[in-house]
Simulated assay, not measured.
Amino acid sequence: MTRWLAWTTACFISVSSLFCIPLQSSAGEGPNPVAQVERTSLAQAAQDDHVAKPIPDLRSEATLQASINNWRSILAREAGFEAWQSASWNSFPLGPGTHGWGVILTDHGQEVGYMIVYAAENGSFRLNEYGTGAHPLFSLTTLYRSLVQQELIPSTMSYSDFVRNEQITKNRLYMDALTAVWKVAIEGQTYYLDAKTGELLPLKEDPKPKLTEASLQRTDLQGTAITAAAPSFDPYERLPWILGQPLSISKVQEFQTAFKQHNNLTYVTELYGGLVTLPLAIIGYQQWGKNDNYLILDHMGARYVQLEGALAQGRIYK
């Protein structure tokens, strides 16, 4: 079977309404040329999109940069995030009406992780999702390789030419952690691809999210992280999520108990009206303070998604 993931409704936001944050460097590095190519292309593409309602306070650009730098520094102290210590980052808007941004971190020319950030009503920001590995969410590098492999673009097209090509529209659609896709138009044909793996999805139209923005919690990584980890495994080696019954888990404490009691827990969610079943290995959880809880899933790298939202969207099997 093929693993899939998810997406959201939207096109790029006009740079006159929101903004594409310049590449930041915490280690004195110069701008990454690949990231610069992407940022320029995205800003140009955004100019033709519909203007989104601006975030509550346009002065929050500086606050957004400060928040991202703060989260990067905090997470860089955690196991598995060592590459973030010297990583620089660039950001991109997620779509009209979402008031959200994606962030990709790069260390010595290699992508090493990502964040998904949303604006809060009070002008601050919340960290909705983050992850590590060489396949960050909404990586143009992953998208380019997938389109070449699917023979949707010629292998003779370079990465830089692909990014700059205005005839190929590349929209990042994000509504929640498990509803994130690329919407790509090539020669009049529209394709949807998984925002994490780049796999082609069996979609004909923009799917609807499972969670509303109002259901997302404000998170800021306060306090000391408590992390519980487990080895990864292939959820396709055993199929309890097909033959068995899910555990009765709806609360954070119930999940923590089950994680301690059972090995190889599998998280399963149905996406796009049941067109895709996504099973992922649960490799841990991370808790910040009393209320910031993240489920850690293995999806071509570790993904840290809000635990409460994940429980509402899927089931867990032992």
Rank of each mutant, 00 (worst) to 15 (best):
Q261D: 06
S25N: 14
Q85W: 00
I226D: 05
D161L: 09
G123V: 06
S67E: 06
D48C: 12
A62K: 10
G30C: 03
Q245D: 04
K196P: 01
Q85G: 08
A66M: 04
S60V: 05
L58R: 11
F12H: 15
T197G: 04
P33G: 10
D161S: 15
G28A: 07
R59D: 01
P154D: 06
L275A: 13
M1A: 09
I282V: 15
E61A: 14
T197H: 02
N293L: 05
Y130H: 14
T224W: 01
L200C: 00
G133C: 11
V34Y: 03
G28L: 04
L297D: 03
N264S: 06
C20A: 04
S155R: 08
H99E: 13
G102N: 12
T40W: 00
L147R: 02
L147V: 10
S248W: 06
K210I: 05
S215V: 14
Y317A: 10
G198K: 01
M1V: 12
G30K: 06
S139K: 08
P279T: 11
D194K: 04
I282K: 10
R164Q: 15
D107K: 10
T141D: 13
L147I: 08
R218Y: 02
T269S: 14
K204D: 13
L216W: 04
T142V: 15
T142L: 14
D234V: 14
A87Y: 02
A66P: 00
G198F: 00
H262M: 10
